[in-house]
């Protein structure tokens, strides 16, 4: 079966524990992080994680809901896009 991957994009002010808390939440959902990149762009912290959610019990909707909640508690914006969307837009 093909893997189902999403791109988790975290945007906001840099602070301690971003990677730790996002990773922990992903682990709790049964998701596997395949790639992580981060950078400060124009003073804004941006991190993207490519995540395999094939074994994720709650599906992308449940993951998005919990990531949204985590983002709100940390003052961050978290977006979850299907890998297929980002691939369509940036790869020919």
């Amino acid at each position: 079966m093909d893997k189902e991957r999403v791109l988790v994009v975290v945007i906001g002010g840099d602070q301690k524990g971003i990677i730790a808390r996002v990773s922990t939440l992903l682990f709790q959902h049964g998701a596997n992080i395949e790639d992580v990149q981060q950078k400060v762009m124009d003073g804004t912290f941006v991190m993207n994680m490519l995540v395999d959610i094939s074994d994720c019990d709650s599906g992308p909707a449940g993951l998005r809901r919990d990531l949204d909640h985590l983002g709100q508690t940390m003052g961050l914006t978290v977006m979850v896009h299907s890998e297929s969307v980002v691939k369509a837009m940036h790869r020919v």
């Binding site: 981060q38 762009m41 941006v46």
Partner: peptide
């Protein structure tokens, strides 16, 4: 396949901002 931070930020930013 991996995506750069710039690519991820561009996609998210189109929707967010």
């Amino acid at each position: 396949m991996s995506f750069s931070v710039e690519e991820a930020f561009e996609t998210a930013g189109m929707i967010l901002f």
